[in-house]
Write a protein that binds this DNA or RNA. Structure first.
Lengths: 337, 337
DNA sequence: TTGAAAGCGCTAACAT
DNA sequence: ATGTTAGCGCTTTCAA
């Protein structure tokens, strides 16, 4: 920058003004500076600027996801990127794989790089370690799940309502023996979806058979095995509510493997690509990950300019997508099934 | 850091040594410093350190993808992250949507933040604007497609061979009227896959009917429409080779819509989730995006420690996954069909 | 093993 | 409209 200033015959601050598009430079001077910068193929060093910039901003944010390689998270990622890019902000991203230790390490990697804000999919244990950062003025937005022990903006799906809706849908088709297949109980959304399941059952005066409640699944494989086990019992469910993407697919594979995909109903939480082309097409409670990501990013940037109001909780609605698998009716009841 | 030094009663450099785990500090001193750091809840400011650090490293890299919201790119992303994380390096990521302008803007956003390296999915036009950065010592690795006009490490799939293999597979089932449905002709992989298609046809002495070669598709929608048009002609193909993920799905939807999914063969390039559960299950040439991402990241970090050998070209093999749709035989030929 | 001084390249604050 | 000076918080260099 010094060299550019020398070549253009101006002060260094003028160069700074020009390359940053700040006002208060005569067009002719600006032109001269631009030419000199071009000549020397000068590029600003934001790292140096970050050290002194107002508010100590680095124009970067950190995005902590369960895994970048996961369609739900990837859609959020894309939405966040689009909002950030429009503001000239770069995005660091990383994956926790649901490990609290990894979450902390990633957050520290980001905060030590002085990100201007953090969007976090919490692993659900305890986020009080973020208190200092929060007090220091770094905005934080929790997505998909609330953060524990800190009071921050939160953007989540209506997990309880969505799950209740799904189960009510099954009940409406006449099902009473409905199984719940859930994700890790450390994940807040998994717990909430189970709560929605219980609410729907209670609302229909159906006692929950706890042997039909399976938790701590996390991938296709474990869901497949659990569903196979469940479906090979003497008394099996007439419908299954799967609380997550990969679990839905694992359960679907089990239904197909046992040839009962046209006789046992299935509703999944979270939509997935090609669900409509399967046999039967899979009924799901669709989330809107783009809306979640966009809302989170907008909250985050909103906080940066005006941090003086209480944390908000934004609930993004879900939508039941009726496709077929969820409309299969139970076998005609004899007695009190 | 000054405060920590004061509290621990040591020099500032000693604090620096301790928090960075550098050798040459007496255990007792280190302990005292650690305690003081804890007390003041001190966290290093990497941004400040970046200004002076040897080699001007920032311990961050930039990853430019077609879109982070795309299963192929997301898998690459995850693999890159895992390699980087093990080295304490943070990853900036962003999406070009195949726009050269956006690519440049993103690359500049990253280089002005002084990333230690760049992994780039080029939009295929011209990457000579990276020459300066390259000469300045920033390692660059092109993934999925070569970069144009600069000589850098490159990690790609064996597009020509993979496509040829797919088409040979169709020819082996007796097909002669084989359609090619390709991505944007600006994308190098699309061109290479068409080349593989032509090689296979030439190898089997089958003249290519250019009316069956469709290019410039890019998403499900456009592929669906193009396939519908193709399949409603009086003389239609007996088999289709789809050169990309979303195109394969779009074509599949068209086959289903017209009820010809059991009579017209389909092979796709790039595997996708649930391909095995469709009716018929879809035969594909599977790529290995994790291997591509891992190889690219390892090349990148390799360059950082030893940049003195010529750029390498790493070709990650593909694999034909036979599932059903690609094994459908053509109707019995009468005459020279 | 430890510390003092210099300075990375920029931006802020304050002249002019 | 433009320039000057100080200093961001660290790491480097070099001396003790």
């Amino acid at each position: 920058m010094r060299d550019v200033a020398a070549l253009a015959g101006v002060g260094i601050k003028t160069v700074s003004r020009v390359v940053n598009g700040e006002p208060g430079v005569a067009p002719a001077t600006a032109e001269r500076v631009s030419r000199a910068a071009q000549e020397l193929s000068f590029q600003v060093d934001m790292v140096a600027g970050n050290l002194r910039r107002t508010g100590r901003r680095t124009r970067s944010i950190g995005l902590v996801l369960a895994s970048v390689d996961n369609p739900f998270a990837a859609a959020i990622h894309r939405a966040v990127e689009d909002v950030a890019e429009a503001r000239g902000v770069a995005v660091f991203s990383a994956s926790t794989d649901e490990h609290p230790d990894r979450e902390r390490a990633l957050v520290e990697a980001f905060t030590s790089r002085r990100v201007d804000g953090l969007i976090l999919t919490s692993t659900g244990v305890d986020q009080r370690y973020l208190l200092r950062e929060l007090e220091a003025g770094t905005p934080i937005v929790a997505i998909d799940r609330p953060a524990v022990g800190i009071d921050v903006d939160t953007v989540v799906a209506d997990n309880v309502e969505g799950a209740r809706h799904a189960v009510e849908h099954l009940v409406g088709s006449g099902h009473r023996r409905i199984a719940f297949m859930g994700d890790l109980a450390t994940i807040a959304t998994a717990v909430q979806r189970l709560e929605g399941f219980r609410q729907a059952m209670a609302g229909a005066d159906i006692p929950v058979d706890e042997s039909l409640v399976v938790e701590d699944l996390h991938d296709e494989e474990s869901a497949f095995k659990a569903a196979m086990e469940l479906l090979m019992r003497s008394v099996r469910p007439t419908a299954i509510f799967a609380s997550q993407n990969l679990i839905t697919i694992g359960v679907f594979r089990a239904l197909r493997t046992l040839g009962v995909h046209h006789s046992i109903a299935l509703v999944g939480f979270d939509d997935f690509s090609l669900a409509d082309l399967l046999d039967p097409p899979v009924t799901v409670v669709a989330q809107d990950p783009f809306a979640i990501g966009r809302a989170a990013a907008e909250r985050l940037f909103g906080r940066m300019t005006d941090g003086a109001f209480p944390p908000q909780r934004i609930v993004v609605p879900t939508r039941l997508v009726v496709r077929g698998s969820g409309e299969i009716r139970p076998p005609v009841a004899r007695g009190n099934g």
